[in-house]
């Protein structure tokens, strides 16, 4: 018998990252320690590849954050189509990330969490009353860099985290431009920063982006 054990967790995440498809396995709502180690190795490798395109000096890989996020995405995708009596487990499955939120964490989490908005939108379309919808929405509102999406928008953009340091600001604005997330670009503060940021290139890159008129509130 082959020593290589099937690793559905890794298969699913790797396939998602490579092809953008979900592979959903049956009834496996727990991951083993071995599986966790494998996926961290895999994600670290990919992180290094992505860091090649990262402006400025790339931050270090945060294994805990990456593992946490990949589990969130994995569980969310499983629960999207396959569900038994899991309501009681939601709390433990989707526990909050405990740790410092910095550039390293944001990028490590983003390796997989960037797929969460789509899963969330699917879920919301199927059943807006689903308790999982609230849980995922809360995660997306916390991890706003990964939540940037054309349709989805975080309730309140955390400018303190995303606009204060130049590195995070640049990847954050880049993501908005890449995704053409017009909802995000229409946030009053982001809008003016983004237009300055694009500068001469604005009309070539994103013609639909227009300065919004700020009205004086009385």
């Amino acid at each position: 018998m082959s020593k290589l054990k099937p690793n559905f967790f890794l298969d699913s995440i790797a396939h998602l990252r490579a092809h953008g498809h979900l592979i959903i396995s049956d009834d496996l709502l727990k991951t083993t320690k071995q599986e966790d180690e494998d996926i961290v190795l895999y994600l670290e490798q990919d992180f290094e590849k992505e860091c090649l395109s990262f402006p400025f000096e790339a931050p270090r890989f945060n294994a805990n954050a990456a593992l946490w996020a990949s589990k969130i995405v994995y569980y969310a995708s499983l629960l999207l189509l396959h569900r038994k009596d899991t309501k009681k487990d939601l709390e433990t499955m989707f526990a909050d990330y405990t740790g410092v939120v910095d550039l390293s964490t944001i990028l490590s989490v983003d390796l997989t969490l960037r797929f969460l908005p789509q899963i969330f939108l699917e879920l919301e379309a199927i059943d807006p009353q689903d308790p999982l919808v609230i849980v995922l929405k809360q995660i997306l509102n916390t991890w706003q860099f990964s939540a940037i999406h054309q349709t989805f928008k975080a309730e309140d953009i955390d400018k303190h985290i995303y606009l204060n340091t130049i590195e995070i600001k640049q990847v954050f604005l880049n993501r908005i431009v890449d995704k053409k997330a017009i909802n995000w670009a229409h946030d009053a503060q982001i809008n003016s920063i983004l237009i300055d940021y694009l500068g001469y290139y604005k009309n070539d890159i994103w013609k639909a982006l227009q300065p919004i008129k700020t009205t004086n509130e009385h």
């Binding site: 402006p55 400025f56 880049n174 431009v177 890449d178 290139y201 070539d204 890159i205």
Partner: peptide, 11 residues
């Protein structure tokens, strides 16, 4: 170059 956003480089 290493600090430039994508849109300044991709063309």
């Amino acid at each position: 170059i290493e600090c430039s956003p994508n849109f300044r480089l991709e063309h």
